[in-house]
Every structure is written in C-alpha cells, then in structure tokens.
Amino acid sequence: MNKKIRWEIPAMLVLFAAFISVIALHSSIAYANSPNQNVNANVVVPSTCYLAVTPVTISFGSLPPGSNYATNVLVTGSDVDGNANSYLYVSGGNWIATSHFGVSNTTWNPTSMVSYAGNSLSTTPTNTLIQIPFGAGTSNVIYFGLNVPGATPAGTYTQTITLYASC
C-alpha cells in the first residue's frame, strides 16, 4: 500500500506542473500574438513657469553728470511654455567703469513715465508685482530709468540688471 502511494504523488505533481506550463505557454503566445495590447503609462506634469526677456541689453545713451533719463526704457518678459503664472522680481548691480556709482540710481516701474521716477533698483531681488502670464502670445513689461550723479567721472559704465520669474 505504502509503495503505491509513494510513486503516485510525484507522478501527480509532475502532471500538474506540466499542465500549468502548457497553460502559461499558451497564454504568453496568445498574448504576444494578440493585436490589442494595452500598456499603462503615466507622467506627472508639474506647474512650471519660464521667463524669456527682450531685449537683452539696454542703453541710456550719453548722460552728463547730474542728468537723468526718463523711466521709459522698455523690457518685455514672456512665458511661452509654462503652465503657471509667475511674478517678476528685479535686482541689479552697481554701474561700473574705472569708477562706479550706485545701483539705486537706476529706477524701475510697471508703466512708462515721462520723467525719471519709480522704484530704486537694489542688489536684493524685489517683487515688482508684475505678473507674467503663461501661454503663447502673452507677456508683460517693465520700464527702467537712470540718473547719473553729479561729479561722476567720465567713462563708459555698465550695469547688470537681473529679471527673475518666481512661481
């Protein structure tokens, strides 16, 4: 009796394994040959903002010491590829040549002004509250002006103004 049980159990196990293998092979072949295969894919698109500015250089011409330039020099910011509105921040550095004069002599304003006026530029980024809307065909503007302090030595001065998008 015991001898009979011994060979029957392994035989059943082998048959069962063979059965499962056949089914699995059939399923894989059927799946591979199936014309309608679904693969689930996913992606997370985060809220993003960009900034492109134009022009990349501005000039205030030739200004004698003690004179100024009206706050009407235009710079445009746009965000073509973003999906989130952003705010424009601005900061700057000193005017530098062989000598230098301070960053605060440059002013900025959301609207064009007929005279030298507006907010003084600083080395620390300042929120202009100018919103840069996202999407093609949308943009916003900021204007700059300049005052050259009296007794400024003659020279060709350069400043770097940084515009940031923040979202």
Binding site: L51, V53, P55, S59, T158, Q159, T162
Partner: peptide
C-alpha cells in the same frame, strides 16, 4: 553678453 555704456539684462528664476 556685454553692453558698454548700457545695462545687460540677465535672466533668472527665484524660489522662496
């Protein structure tokens, strides 16, 4: 970019 006698506009992003 350089701008002798003028200002260079630099682009950046700012995160709080």
């Amino acid at each position: 970019v350089t701008a002798p006698g003028g200002a260079v506009i630099q682009t950046g992003v700012l995160k709080g």
